[in-house]
Design a protein around this nucleic acid. Structure first.
Length: 917
RNA sequence: GCCCGGAUGGUGGAAUGGUAGACACGAAGGACUUAAAAUCCUUUGGCUUCACGGCUGUGCGGGUUCAAGUCCCGCUUCGGGUACCA
């Protein structure tokens, strides 16, 4: 019997489906393990071979954990809302729901072929009302809470209202958009509308006028993580700054907790580092500067309080409210010119063209420590959104201030002994302070601490921590997203009653803004509730992915996002696998979302993802043919030097081992029908390059084709065999024969022609050694996600058993269980051939018995000055002295010594002998 | 600019400081076959030698060590992230 993968794979996929093998229920008798993949956005292009890489890795781990007796939750679903479907709808008029559904069906079909152990009964789609009901619900909770900075925890907004009623803002410790203060009486005197406006200043989900990233091309605002280098991450359209009234989530309130939490999770260093940078905590001081000839002062934030004696000017952000206050009449026209000019510059232009610009405001500040007068400038190199939107400039020790000072000829005072600031600033935080009054003679580190102390003592300001992390803008002027459960009364937002959820996405005639420039929902008929208009914006794509891992625990629950019981059992994700591209988006938002729900007592774990692995990208491997200029003749790779040629991408699917299938090429495209070829050794050899896998490079490989030709097990093994999981590597179908041969060879241990070879003989010591060293290696590799070396280990094992002609059940059975996580179909088949009747998924993972691995002899490499000259087989338990004696007496040693006596002999028992001459 | 990863045969890649190149692909040769496919066996870093063997070799330059792909210092280079965050 031959290895018929097609038959085997179909048979067991049907069996698993029929027997609900992958259905998971809460089982308190077993420990839980939750393995999660970052769910995909179902794009129209379907899956290419790069997509399943992470899914296969998580599938292996899930199956492994199950074999070890864990109750494994391994769900899958779809991040179904998003821009591409809507852009497509705008172009074609097709409803995004229709294309999304179609794409999901296609994804599912592709995923099913690979034999994953997903519990599909738990599937979720973010665009389904049953699901987004809970996204809307969470939003309502965020609206109804504020963040108490003292407790570092979300609290009901009603408790804040109570506090306002009794003592106003006195003693309030709450994260807010803007510091405001009022008394209890003032509060009570306010109208309902005024009170609501004030509460928005504190709510975790709030509406505010904010400077946002507006993308005209997409017709929507974008969050910071959706913009990179001044263009939208999706589509690469220019983005500009605009002030708009938008929903936001007060993610910044959780900055410290988001930072602290990173110490409690097992993520890769690079990922935690990225998050740390994104959160951007900096400790420093807020210093108050008085303005000369005005009864006015303002604060600046600095991490270098030690450089206070080197401040030679101040700079305000052009958008700062201080600009108006500090611009003198004389300077007013010039300042206005500058403001107009900067406003016109988009973020992108500012990044591309980083010239030094600025204008003098006319005012002077007084250095609070030295008392000197310093001019106040305005420049766009200072950001309005960070700190106070104003800085103290220390050109000697900050490169940006230095560039500015040089350009406008402002003084530069060095503060560190021996530093040279004639060409560049000295930014390093090291050295001994000079020119700095009471800080002279201290190291920079000491000076920072002392200056902070001084500032606090003298009440010149306060020690402060600033974060780079911004609140998440949560409104999108788009159709294909979750509607907000919000209606407006007297222009103030109010939440829908929970009983009215979900608020379903209405139908509209066109997926475009209205003629008045309102978002697409402005087109919806009767988009109101009880006579009040509903919100026209929809939620961003990260809304639906922020708590999906919780929903999988209890996907059908219509009373809660997740029941306490399910949450108590499944708790959080033990292993999360996905791409690095979500480092600053999804992985921040979902941690924030989870912490919020944690504060409300709705989930029992503070961090959602305990361990996280980033799978590397699968790159494409493109092939080229070389056309001789102005002809339809193509020349083979190694002959092309003789001609002037153009390289043309050719579909990798009609190339095998870099040799072009000429007939297929001719019919690939009409213009090549009459093509002629200059061959080498009768073959047309193509060139190649590693590039992104994309349609335009003709290097996309579809997993379906691989499954068709080699089977799912081969695909799974080969994806893992390509290289380390976390590394990026090119896909090259050429190597796949190797793993396919391995499976065939494994099969050949069971069958020769029609004869079953399996027998019940007792295994030899050698066979047991092969088996158990494989068990040991595979176990270690799975635990360390080193799947590429496990595939090698399987190959070695089968090669050895093949050489030993071993078809013993006692060896093959554990081997088939061992292989089951990697190649479940063939493993299941083999397991049944061996006489088992239940699924291999419920077998017990074999355990290595070290007894079988014990070596009686060691092959000692004998080296001279570190260079190995020969090997010597000696008993494993031989003493050091005896090894030395034998090694030194060996004829080859004597030859190497040339009559000299060795200076030193190093013996590492069981490892190596090194003789030093 | 800053931060994080890499760099090992023709290719993908192995190597708790202890015989570099496991395992595969490709290539070459052979067996089986009328033939092909499939399968099996052998060789395969480079240079050198009839051979035994020798020399050399993990991006570059230093260093530590009995011993370095691995540790340290300084570069080169290719990816990825981030960007006026004071």
């Amino acid at each position: 019997m031959e290895y018929n993968f097609k038959e085997i794979e179909q048979k067991w996929q049907a069996y698993w489906k029929k027997n609900s093998t992958y259905k998971t229920e809460i089982d308190n008798s077993k420990p839980k393990f939750y393995v999660l993949d970052m769910f995909p956005y179902p794009s129209g292009a379907g899956l290419h071979v790069g997509h399943p890489l992470g899914y296969i890795a998580s599938d292996i781990f899930s199956r492994y954990k199950r074999l070890q007796g864990f109750n494994v939750l391994h769900p899958m679903g779809y991040d179904a809302y998003g821009l591409p479907a809507e852009q497509y709808a705008i172009q074609t008029g097709q409803h995004p729901a229709v294309t999304t559904k179609k794409n999901i069906a296609r994804y599912r079909e592709q995923l099913d072929k690979i034999g994953f152990c997903y519990d599909w009964s738990r599937e979720i789609r973010t665009c389904e009302p049953d699901y987004y009901k809970w996204t809307q619900w969470a939003f309502i909770q965020m609206f109804n809470h504020y963040f108490n900075t003292k407790l570092q925890k979300a609290q009901p907004i009603v408790s804040l209202i109570k506090a306002f009623e009794t003592s106003g803002t006195e003693g309030i410790q709450a994260s807010c958009t803007e510091e405001i203060s009022f008394t209890a009486n003032e509060w009570k005197a306010k109208t309902e509308k005024e009170q609501q406006e004030i509460l928005l200043n504190y709510r975790i989900a709030y509406l505010a006028d904010l400077k946002v990233n507006w993308c005209p091309e997409l017709g929507t605002v974008l969050a910071n993580d959706e913009v990179s280098e001044g263009v939208s991450v999706r589509g690469g359209h220019p983005v500009e700054q605009r002030v708009m009234r938008q929903w936001s989530l007060r993610v910044s309130a959780y900055a410290q907790r988001l930072l602290d939490g990173l110490n409690t999770v097992e993520w890769t260093d690079s990922l935690t580092e990225t998050q740390k940078n994104w959160i951007g905590r900096s400790e420093g001081a807020e210093l108050r500067f008085e303005v000369k000839d005005q009864d006015f002062n303002f604060d600046v934030f600095t991490t270098r309080a030690d450089t206070i004696y080197g401040v030679t000017f101040m700079v305000l952000a052009p958008e700062s409210e201080l600009v108006k206050q500090l611009t003198t009449d004389k300077q007013a026209p010039e300042v206005q010119n500058y403001l107009d000019a900067t406003k016109k510059r988009t973020e992108r232009e500012r990044i591309a063209d980083r010239r030094v610009t600025g204008v003098f405001s006319g005012s002077y500040a007084i250095n609070p420590v030295s008392g000197t007068e310093i001019p106040i400038w305005i420049s766009d190199y200072v950001l309005s959104g960070y700190g106070t939107g104003a800085i103290m400039a220390v050109p000697a020790h900050d490169s940006r201030d230095y560039a500015f000072a040089k350009h406008f000829n402002l003084p530069i005072i060095p503060l560190i002994e021996g530093c040279d600031v004639t060409e560049d600033s000295f930014d390093a935080k090291e050295g001994i302070m000079i020119n700095s009054g009471f800080l002279n003679g201290l190291t920079v580190k000491q000076a920072i601490a002392k200056a902070k102390e001084y500032i606090a003592e003298q009440k010149l300001g306060q020690v402060k921590v600033n974060f780079r992390l911004r609140d998440a803008i949560f409104s999108r002027q788009r159709y294909w997203g979750e509607p907000f459960p919000v209606y407006y009364k007297d222009e103030m937002p109010y939440m829908l009653d929970e009983s009215r959820l979900p608020l379903e996405l209405p139908e509209i005639d066109k997926f475009l803004p209205t003629e008045q420039g309102e978002p697409p929902l402005g087109r919806a008929k009767n988009w109101e509730i009880d006579g009040y208009p509903l919100e026209l914006n929809t939620m961003p794509v990260f809304a639906g992915s922020s708590a999906y891992y919780l929903r999988y625990m209890d996907p059908k629950n219509d009373k809660a996002l997740v029941s306490a019981e399910a949450n108590q059992y499944w708790r959080n994700v033990d292993l999360y696998i996905g791409g690095t591209e979500h480092a600053t988006g999804h992985l921040i938002y979902s941690r924030f979302w989870n912490k919020f729900l944690f504060d409300l007592g709705l989930v029992c774990e503070d961090e959602p993802f305990k361990k996280l692995i980033n799978q590397g990208m699968i790159q494409g491997r493109s092939n080229f043919v070389y056309r001789i200029k102005d002809s339809n003749t193509f020349v083979s790779l190694n002959l092309k030097k003789q001609y002037e040629t153009t390289a043309i991408h050719v579909d990798v699917n009609i190339v095998s081992n870099d040799v072009l299938d000429i007939e297929k090429f001719k019919s690939w495209h009409p213009e090549y029908k009459t093509a002629e070829f200059i061959l080498e050794d009768g073959k047309y050899v193509c060139g190649w390059a590693v590039e992104k896998m994309s349609k335009s490079m003709y290097n996309v490989v579809n997993p379906d084709d691989i499954v068709e030709k080699f089977g799912a097990d081969t695909l799974r093994l080969y994806e893992m065999f390509l290289g380390p999981l976390e590394q990026s590597k090119p896909w090259d179908t050429n190597g796949i024969d190797g793993v396919h041969r391995f499976l065939k060879r494994l099969w050949s241990l069971f069958y020769k022609d029609e004869n079953l070879l399996v027998n019940n003989e007792a295994p030899t010591a050698e066979e047991l050694k092969t088996l158990h060293k494989t068990i040991k290696k595979i176990t270690f590799d799975i635990e360390n996600f080193s799947y590429n070396t496990s595939v090698s280990a399987f190959m070695i094992c089968v090669n050895e058993l093949f050489a030993l002609k071993c078809s013993k059940k006692a060896v093959l059975e554990p081997l088939s269980i061992l292989l089951a996580p990697f190649a479940p179909h063939i493993a299941e088949e083999l397991y049944h051939i061996l006489g088992n009747e239940s699924t291999v998924c419920d077998a017990v993972f074999p355990v290595c018995n070290e007894e079988y691995l014990k070596e009686t002899a060691v092959k000692y490499p004998i080296s001279f000055n570190g260079k190995v000259r020969f090997t010597l087989e000696l008993p494993a338990d031989m003493s050091k002295d005896e090894v030395e004696k034998i090694a030194l007496l060996h004829e080859q040693t004597i030859k190497q010594l040339h009559g000299k006596s060795p200076k030193k002999v190093i013996i590492v028992p069981g490892k190596i002998v090194n003789i030093v001459l």
